[in-house]
Amino acid sequence: MSELLTTPAPGGPVVEEERHPHEPFLRMDRIPHIWCSTCGLGTVLNCYITAIQRSSVPRADHTIVSGIGCTGRAAGYVKIDSFHTTHGRALPFATGLKLANPRLKVTVFSGDGDLVAIGGNHLIHAARRNMDMTVICVNNFNYAMTGGQFGPTTPEGAKLTTAPYGSYEHPFNIPFLVDSCGATYVARWTSLHVREMIETLVEALNHRGFSFVEVISPCPTVYARRNRLGTGLDLLKYYHDSAEVRHGADTRDVDISFKGRIIVGRFVQRCKPTYLDTMDAALGRSVGKEFVCYEGPMQASDGRS
């Protein structure tokens, strides 16, 4: 069989030895990743890596922080400084990183359960502070790592292991949530919208302030299977048919229902002083001449700066 596999397909080269252009940004000793076939997480990670390279931030300054769950594993695959923290606490950990070294471009890459359920309090406060960081929230409508339980983003009616008769809770409309809390960049795409997602992620990474990108992504193994929605590919087809691009949409209108339309686009982009901007300005004003701006992280002894 292996002979057949390494034989070039008719008419085109099939190359086994070549290296994917993203490999310098991947921990290749950890690839293949753990995500299931037709899961969208790999696609989002792929787009994030493209966006890192296209962003105006030097590679060494990019830092990724994840929480727990399927999406939480993302940090472990990217070859930049990466932190896999506790469930829900990626945002405050990231806040500490950013404040201790304001030069860093901190990206929180985590799931809907991690960011919106157990970490919901941190999400609203990070948005309120306009903490200068990027959040990529991969929303697959359930807790996948633990076998498919419903969560705060599960559309009403969707069946999951802890909602065997269908979820009867009202789900969060995440863009509305973060928008109303003060996020200064809010966008949503699906994992099918790869070009738009890359463009948006580059914008989000270059944005000064709290930028939030929700990516609707298929969970074939638990969410789709329980709800008889087919494979991840079938979900991409659903995204294709049901997504409606509406840039600048009022975030109150972008809620998602079971099998309903998905409004995507860049909803919010505004300028507002970040946490560090307001802190330095306010302290500078009130403390006056005696104010000493945060001196940056401790210098490592070999003189790196």
Partner: peptide, 12 residues
């Protein structure tokens, strides 16, 4: 969580 992040950012 924030002080752990702060420590990895290079601060005491």
């Amino acid at each position: 969580a924030a002080i752990l992040g702060g420590a990895w950012g290079g601060a005491k």
